[in-house]
Design a protein around this nucleic acid. Structure first.
Length: 431
DNA sequence: TCTGGGGTCCTAGGACCC
DNA sequence: TCTGGGGTCCTAGGACCC
C-alpha cells in the first residue's frame, strides 16, 4: 500500500499558523509581482472565487469581501514544508516528496488492518508539530491514493485519513469521482471523455483498455491501470531530487525595452540556475534563453524568441553560465520591443562526478578557478544571505537621485509579504 | 497600471543512416 | 505514367502536474 499526504490549502495555512487572528477569515496568496491569486483559503473557495484570478480584478470585483491578500513568502513555505517532511520521515518507512506540500509514503511492513489508525495518528502528529492540517489517502496505487486523499479532505467523517483497500471500496470511490478530478487526466482529455458520456472515474475504468490506449496514448493507459488497482507508476519516476532541466524565469512588474536593463535579469536567472545545478551536484551542457513580450497588450508589437549555447565541456560555474546566457540574450534581443518576461534554462544535465572534457578546448586551470569562485559564492551567500555577493552583470541599474550610483534592488513586487517567521529572529518584532 | 513559475513525459515528424 | 524499405536519433510542441 502507498499513502499520499498533502497539506490543506498549504500557502494560506502557512500564513495562518503564525497569525491566529486570521483563523476563519478569508485569505489569498498572490503570485510574484502580486499578479494572480495562486492559493485560496477554505473560506475564499466557499465564496466561489475562481483560481488564478488577477489581483486587480479581485479588488474590482470583490471590493467588500473582506479578503486579506498576502504576497507569496517562499522562504516561509519552504521551511514549513521541510518541517512537515521531517515529521513524515520519522514515521513512514519511506517518503518521496512530490511537491512542496505533498509526499508519497511507502507503507510496506504496516499491517493493513491498522493502517487507518496509523494514518490518523500521523496526521495528528503533523498538526501538533507544525500547526498544519494534512489529509492522507491510502490505497494500492498512487492514483488511487491521490483519490483517497480527496475524500479524506472533503469528508470530516474520515478524520483526515481515507483507506481504499478492498475492490468494493475502490468501486464505490470511483463512482463518486468525476473523470476531470482524476490525477493524470487533464482538461482536454476530460472534455473528450465527457463528450462520449464518460462522467465518473468508474465509467472510465469500464472502457476497453485497447480503446484507451488508441485514443489517448500511454499516459492515459497508465492512469487506467492504476485506477483498477494495478500499480504502474513507479516511485522512482516521481522522485524529483535530480532535475533534468532547471528553469528560472520571471515576469517584470513593468515592461522593459532596453538591452542593458534586460541583462541583469538574465544574469541573475542564469546565476540561480548555476546555483541550483551545483546544489544537486550536476553540470549542464546547454543553456537557453527565451524572451516574451506582453501577450495581453494587443496594442504593442508581439515578439517571442529563444536561442541556446552549448558547452563543449559540461559546466556548473556561475561565470560561464552567466556569460553564455548574456550572449544568447544579445542574439535574440530586438530593439523596439517591450519585454514582459525572460527566462534561462539549463539542460543536458549530468552528474558532476563524470564530466567528459572536450579534447581540444578544455582548460583545467581556468575551470578550477571558476569552480572555486562558484563554490565561494555559494559559501558566502548561504551564510550571509542570498545575493550577498554577485557578479557585476547581476546588478540592476537603478540610478539614485544624483544620477550616478548603481544600487542593487529587489526587482519583484511583494508589497503584502508576511514576515519570515521561521527563519528570521527579528520577524515578530519588525512587523 | 494590473494577468505566476517550475517541472515531466510523450509523440509526431524530420534528418539522417544503410 | 513512373522514384524502396527499414531503421535510429533528435527536436518542438502538447498535455499534464504542482
Amino acid at each position: 500500500m502507498v499513502g499520499l499526504i498533502d497539506c490543506d490549502n498549504f500557502f494560506c495555512s502557512c500564513e495562518k499558523v503564525f497569525r491566529p487572528d486570521l483563523e476563519g477569515k478569508p485569505i489569498v496568496v498572490l503570485s510574484n509581482n502580486d499578479g494572480c491569486v495562486v492559493a485560496r483559503s477554505r473560506e475564499v473557495k466557499a465564496m466561489g472565487l475562481p483560481e488564478c484570478l488577477p489581483y486587480y480584478r479581485l479588488l474590482e470585483e470583490y471590493p467588500d469581501s473582506g479578503i486579506i491578500a498576502f504576497s507569496s513568502n517562499y522562504t516561509l513555505y519552504a521551511d514549513m514544508s521541510a518541517r512537515v517532511m521531517a515529521v513524515l520521515r520519522q514515521e513512514a518507512p519511506d517518503v518521496w516528496q512530490y511537491s512542496i506540500d505533498e509526499a508519497f509514503l511507502d507503507l510496506h511492513g504496516i499491517d493493513i488492518s491498522t493502517l487507518k489508525e496509523w494514518g490518523e495518528a500521523l496526521c495528528r502528529k503533523v498538526r501538533q508539530y507544525t500547526g498544519l492540517n494534512v489529509s492522507l489517502g491510502i490505497a494500492p496505487t498512487k492514483t488511487l491514493a491521490k483519490l483517497a486523499s480527496r475524500f479524506a479532505k472533503k469528508y470530516p467523517a474520515y478524520n483526515k485519513c481515507c483507506v481504499i483497500a478492498s475492490d468494493l471500496q475502490r468501486e464505490k470511490a470511483l463512482r463518486l469521482v468525476p473523470v476531470r478530478d482524476i490525477w493524470g487526466i487533464g482538461r482536454r482529455m476530460a472534455r473528450s471523455l465527457e463528450n462520449c458520456g464518460i462522467r465518473t472515474a468508474f465509467d472510465f475504468t469500464r472502457m476497453p483498455r485497447e480503446e484507451v490506449r488508441k485514443r489517448f496514448h500511454l499516459g492515459a493507459e497508465r492512469t487506467f491501470a492504476e485506477l483498477l488497482g494495478q500499480p504502474v507508476i513507479d516511485i522512482e519516476s516521481i522522485d524529483g531530487i535530480t532535475k533534468k532541466t532547471i528553469l528560472t524565469s520571471r515576469s517584470f512588474p513593468a515592461l522593459i525595452n532596453e538591452l542593458d536593463d534586460l541583462i541583469p535579469h538574465v544574469a541573475n536567472y542564469a546565476a540561480r540556475c548555476a546555483c541550483k545545478l551545483r546544489r544537486q551536484h550536476s553540470v549542464c551542457s546547454m543553456v537557453s534563453v527565451f524572451v516574451h513580450s506582453n501577450h495581453f497588450r494587443e496594442d504593442l508589437e508581439q515578439y517571442d524568441n529563444s536561442t541556446f549555447h552549448t558547452f563543449l565541456t559540461p559546466t556548473a560555474t556561475t561565470p560561464e553560465i552567466v556569460e553564455a546566457a548574456i550572449e544568447c540574450l544579445k542574439r535574440i534581443y530586438r530593439r523596439g520591443i517591450y519585454y514582459k518576461r525572460v527566462g534561462v534554462m539549463v539542460t543536458d544535465i549530468s552528474p558532476d562526478m563524470t564530466i567528459q572534457p572536450d579534447l581540444f578546448t578544455y582548460d583545467p586551470g581556468r575551470r578550477n578557478k571558476l569552480n572555486s569562485v562558484s563554490q565561494t559564492l555559494d559559501n558566502i551567500n548561504s551564510r550571509m544571505g542570498a545575493d550577498t555577493v554577485v557578479l557585476g552583470a547581476q546588478q540592476y541599474r537603478i540610478k539614485d537621485k544624483s544620477g550616478k550610483n548603481l544600487k542593487f534592488v529587489n526587482a519583484i513586487r511583494r508589497a503584502l509579504k508576511s514576515p519570515d517567521y521561521t527563519t528570521r529572529l527579528g520577524a515578530f518584532v519588525v512587523n
